[in-house]
Amino acid sequence: MPGAIYAEGLVKTFGDVRALDGVDLDVPEGTVLGLLGPNGAGKTTTVRVLTTLLRPDSGKAVVAGIDVLRHPDEVRRSIGLSGQFAAVDEYLTGRENLRMVGQLYQMKAKAAKVRAEELLERFNLGDAADRTAKTYSGGMRRRLDLAAALVVSPPVMFMDEPTTGLDPRNRLQLWGIIQELVAAGTTLLLTTQYLEEADHLAHDICVVDHGKVIARGTSDQLKARTGGERVEVVVHERDRITTAREVLAGFGKGETTVEKHTRKLTVPVSGGAKLLAEVIRELDGRGIEIDDIGLRRPTLDDVFISLTGHAAERRAEERAEAAAGPEVKGRKAARKEAAK
């Protein structure tokens, strides 16, 4: 039986950009799928197709058991959408925003009013309920946006980069709210650029790039493919690199890599902070002066490099495009569109 969110072979092109190039997804009821990828990978386009905002060129999508392409109106009754850009009316107060959304979900005016009060309370917006959303902080707006998505307690939720741009405190707060939702049985599709976020919230993760799912699995499975934590050291003097390399080899689980021009050495390790302290003592003991040292965990870039080997090259291409200016603007616009 297909899950609460199911997609098969979704394709969408904008001009000559293939924003989605055959995306398959299957999210079992009551679980969280993290869609992980860089800007322009096709995350948002996937969400837009599944939430009826965009028609794919081909493919099949079923949400909450309803065919998205054939019965978009019925799908809209069963979903909540919360986006990267808080979708609230900034000239309306928090309360007015929630009541409006409730009524547009076809609730009676009175029911919408009651529901708005509940949500304001739950999302800690009670004190700001009568201020226009314009005066809200970024975190408050995001909470109001999420509250609007939850007006009818939809069984299926979509969150497009819910914490992008939020400070750490607000991010943690939002994570807490999301975890409560999932505990109550909501099926959630979450897009993010942060591995840490997917790690924290998602049961399963799909890594997307160039409109394709290039890897899927639990966060542990993905990390295992990327390699675990590692120590990075930047030595002060270039002629001490060889000695530093010998030191690190004694602690490492694998080969030490060296970037000569940045004087940076990286070695995979296991043992965490305790090991880091030993490395520092040893380097100090040999009289090697260091500019920087740290324990690094796998980042999205690492996942990318290990999965595709093209992350760095992609960034370079984007920079070149940005620098090239007007003549590639059309293509850029199309890509931007795809990224939306």
Binding site: I79, A87, V88, Y105
Partner: peptide, 17 residues
């Protein structure tokens, strides 16, 4: 050109409203 239109278009409301 605001995110709000996506909210409206994802709601079960009349299209011309």
């Amino acid at each position: 050109h605001k995110g709000l239109i996506d909210r409206f278009r994802s709601l079960p409301m009349a299209r011309g409203a």
